[in-house]
Amino acid sequence: MKKVLAAAAMLALSTGSAFAADWKPDGPIRLWIGYGAGGGTDVQARMLAKELEQTRGWILVPENKSGEDGAVMSAQLKNEAPDGQTLGFAITTTYNFAPMNSDNISPEDFTYITTTAGSQMAVLARTSSGWKSLDDVKAAAEAGETLVWANWGTQVEAGAEVIARKLGITVNHLRTAGGKGALNAVVAEDANLSWGGGVQRPLVEAGELTILSSAESTHLVQAPDTPTLKEQGIDLDLGYKYIIVAPKGMSDEVRDTIAEAVAEILNNPESETRKFIEKQYPPAPVIETGDALRKTIIDGYAANVEMMKALVE
């Protein structure tokens, strides 16, 4: 029913998109960031907000609402008016995975405006362990070594378990606070394996950590020759993207105006936000918008539900 209504609303409003440039916010726009102050997501969101103010003359008021992978922010965002003056900044995982564990939100509750950047999801180990690939991990486990895998969330923990089962080995899972916590655990030898979404870059660069596999659908910028999980027969894509969302029911006009404004900044090679993304989430900004983005999220959610079902069985 929800879907039908949404589709009807879209149809009814699609005629309005010709006037996309006409929409202007009536007062300040609140930008709710789904993660804590000072982190990578926060920095990116605030930079973007500042540049939107410069290019469009809008007033943006960023605010952090952290917790549960952005779900805490989303639960509040859902109840706001879809007038373009309350926006959320989070990652795709917030919408294609986190709703499974929440009574409050579902992927249908939101309008997906645009993505900004993509992760460089990798399976990592300390270089000193000598492992170069997942096969080395398997060999070590079979030789009797206890493996501890650092995970920051349920989705990646499930992913780690999928890999372990596929390799036919046992790993113990260590839950850490945030992506940085997972890396710290592996560097501090509290764990042997970890995920990294992008923050691992300097540690890999310094030779401290080694990338064992890409967990994206593509090869990673830092390890172009290391295969993806899919290439090794593990059907898993844990890559995520940074995303700007709004409550559901937003008109296409507003949605597209905001998406255009963001795209203008991300496509400008001089912009600070783009430079930040190029460095932190290489190689370049990832822009996906409109109905295509919506479909990606909804399909991703269905795929994740399947993955979790398969795990429980």
């Binding site: 923990e157 378990e161 795990l311 429980v312």
Partner: peptide, 13 residues
Amino acid sequence: IRGGIIERTISGR
């Protein structure tokens, strides 16, 4: 609280 006291995680532990 949704979670229990001692639980079996997705990884079966």
